[in-house]
Write a protein that binds this DNA or RNA. Structure first.
Lengths: 248, 248
DNA sequence: TCAAAAGTGTTGGCCCTACACCCATGC
DNA sequence: GCATGGGTGTAGGGCCAACACTTTTGA
């Protein structure tokens, strides 16, 4: 079906189902191939990229809404979610649905609640929905141009992620269950945006006493097989309560 | 006029003026008499205390809304404001306006955007409005019972304030222009909830290089007159960009 | 044999805590 | 003289950055 038709059809349904004026946009981070990636969707016929988002049912709270939106998009449940900011500028959607009637749902003034999400890249199966042409992971330094104010939503999410690295279980949620020390270091380096010294990183991580060294190693790669670790969840959450010391 | 009458009268006006389902609640901090205080208002006839709050005009963004709400309440403009969280639980207002018609503005489901505000206590003139009996500063450890989920809004604000102490101009906005080193230290101790060593605090503050020592001292008190300082705004904001090192 | 990973050692420096001591001064 | 404030000294410890060396091992 044509984009305009779909939007018009949805409109009536949405007015009854969702809270007006309120949307949710998600910045979904995943880590793969030593790269931090973000989920973006391409709007049908608009040839424009956007952050995955949706609306808040009249019968749910905003975290449930974000969770539902992402489950539809990724197939994954129990995604780690943090709200980080409300975007409320009057002109944030500008003339985006100009060609539609004023009574259409999408043409309201929307305030958007920004969530960032951390997912295990390997657990995600992307879903392309009715109003999008594509749904893809993009490296954070190769993001396409995003519609409306989604670029600044992303920017703010990344800054928040960086600040919370020592206070939230970010490593745990972005990495697969088993991972190597170089992978963990790479993740930290990307989020912080700077190189870290290997030896010092290794010692500091072990000193935190939140990792369990497994009896396995990762075979198959070139060179020496790296050791595998996993988080000691109990100690990890205990450490997060206090926050790790800052200042890398 | 009677509380019920006022509410009913406001209702029609509000439906036209404000965005539905959305409210703003402010946790306003002030520092006075070596005590961190919070602004609370007493609801008329309800004998219940609440955080000062309001709604978002259809023609303003949320920061403008919070600013307007606080200006009406305190007479002060240019108040330092930070949004920190959206509160969206379905039962957060419970049966608070039970005795009213379902169509009344106040009986909607509200999502509330939490702001914290930092004000110079000495610059504030409190205003009691139509639907409140009182508007008072209360020490943070002597807060009265608050309506709805306002207690948890306050709790979250205080936690946020503590976390942001080294990343936002919190000292600057809570203190008068000129202040003494013991006052500054007291403020830090209260926000952090622990005693700090005087000599070390003094050296650390000076090392930051964000204070200007004035040629005046505060006469009149008992004992030795303490030196007065003010913030070097330029250096202060520069330092905040990077964030002071954590870990008191 | 080469390259990546693992593990360890060392150095100097900074900052933190804790405690202690000095001086100044208002009442 | 006493309480408060201003200012400084120091000892010990922790962590950090930077650098360097060794060992292990898969392809």
């Amino acid at each position: 079906m044509e984009f305009k038709k779909i939007i018009e059809e949805k409109s009536n349904e949405y007015w009854g189902k969702y809270l007006p004026h309120l949307s949710i946009d998600c910045v979904v981070f995943g880590f793969h191939d030593a790269t931090l990636k973000v989920l973006v969707v391409q709007m049908k016929e608009k040839n424009l990229w956007a952050l995955p988002g949706g609306y808040v049912l009249k019968t749910e709270n905003i975290k449930e809404a974000a969770s539902r939106i992402l489950q539809q998009r990724t197939g994954a449940a129990n995604i780690y979610l943090q709200q980080f900011r409300v975007f409320s500028d009057l002109n944030r959607s500008e003339g985006f649905f100009e060609e539609f009637e004023d009574t259409i749902w999408h043409k309201q003034r929307f305030l958007s609640i920004g969530f960032y999400a951390l997912v295990d890249y390997s657990q995600v199966n992307l879903v392309v929905d009715e109003i999008s042409d594509a749904c893809e992971w993009k490296p954070i330094d190769e993001l396409p141009e995003l519609m409306m104010d989604h670029r600044s939503i992303f920017d703010k999410a990344l800054i928040t992620l960086r600040k919370q690295l020592n206070h939230k279980p970010i490593g745990y949620n972005l990495l697969p269950e088993k991972f190597t020390m170089p992978e963990l270091q790479k993740l930290y380096e990307i989020i912080l945006g700077k190189k870290l010294n290997r030896g010092n990183f290794y010692r500091k991580m072990l000193r935190y006493d939140i990792l369990i060294k497994l009896d396995e190693i990762r075979k198959g790669g070139a060179h020496k097989a790296p050791d595998l670790y996993q988080f000691d969840l109990e100690k990890y959450h205990l450490a997060l309560k206090n926050g790790f010391s800052e200042g890398w």
